[in-house]
């Protein structure tokens, strides 16, 4: 049987991979995918915690956490929609999706 620690480690690794993608990749689309991975890592931990730490009252998983997961998924979708719209607008104006090309604003 997998334990809670298994899930948490896997979720931590997923978060780290996402974070690594955000920090190291230069393509905004890929950075965005990395951010999605991070959010999903949080979802995984949340569901794991909710399943493993049963409520003492009725011995059921804490569904509040799953509601939060639901909200996170919704928000992530909205964020993707707005983000991609901004990226498309940027691409139309500048023909690039690379972070290094974002240099209009300088010190």
């Amino acid at each position: 049987m997998p334990t809670l620690a298994h899930y948490l480690v896997v979720s931590g690794l997923l978060f780290a991979i996402g974070l690594g993608g955000v920090l190291l990749r230069r393509n905004i689309l890929i950075i965005f995918m990395g951010l999605e991975l991070m959010l999903n890592a949080a979802n995984l931990s949340l569901v794991a915690f909710s399943r493993f730490n049963l409520l003492p009252a009725d011995g059921m998983p804490n569904y509040n956490a799953q509601v939060l997961v639901f909200f996170i998924i919704t928000v992530a979708a909205a964020e993707v929609a707005v983000g991609l719209a901004i990226i498309v607008a940027l691409f139309r104006a500048k023909q690039t999706t690379h972070v290094e090309d974002l240099n209009t604003l300088k010190f």
């Binding site: 334990t3 809670l4 948490l8 493993f52 049963l54 011995g59 998983p61």
Partner: peptide
């Protein structure tokens, strides 16, 4: 994760089917 023993328990059974 290593330091918390509470995390190393198998999945508990729920009181009702899910």
């Amino acid at each position: 994760v290593v330091s918390l023993p509470a995390l190393h328990v198998p999945k508990p059974d729920v009181s009702q089917p899910l």
